[in-house]
Simulated assay, not measured.
Amino acid sequence: MTITVDRDRCVGAGMCALTAPEVFDQDDEEGRVVVLDTEPAPAHQAAARHAAGLCPAAAITVTATDTTTHQQ
Rank of each mutant, 00 (worst) to 15 (best):
G31R: 06
A48H: 06
A48M: 09
H70N: 02
I60R: 02
A46F: 01
G12I: 12
R7T: 15
M15S: 12
G31W: 08
Q72Y: 00
A52M: 03
A59T: 03
D27E: 11
D27I: 10
A47W: 03
A64S: 09
T38F: 00
C55M: 07
F24D: 09
D27G: 09
M15Y: 15
G31V: 11
R9M: 03
P42L: 10
P42Q: 07
G14I: 11
A64L: 05
G31C: 11
A64C: 00
T61C: 01
T69R: 14
A57C: 02
A20N: 11
T65R: 12
P56W: 07
E29T: 10
A64W: 00
G12A: 10
H44V: 05
D66H: 03
V33T: 11
V11R: 13
T61W: 00
P21V: 14
G53C: 09
A52S: 09
A46H: 12
T61K: 05
M15A: 15
A51S: 04
E22C: 01
T63D: 10
A43R: 15
Q71A: 14
E29K: 08
R32N: 13
T38Q: 04
Q71V: 14
V33E: 06
A57K: 04
H44S: 15
A47Q: 12
Q26P: 13
Q72S: 08
T67I: 03
D25R: 05
V62K: 01
V5K: 02
T38G: 07
P42H: 01
V5L: 07
G31A: 09
L18E: 15
R49M: 10
T2V: 02
G31Y: 04
G53K: 02
C55W: 04
D25E: 15
A47P: 09
Q26F: 04
Q45G: 06
G53W: 07
D8H: 01
A13P: 05
R9I: 00
V33Q: 03
M15E: 15
L18M: 15
V34G: 02
V5W: 01
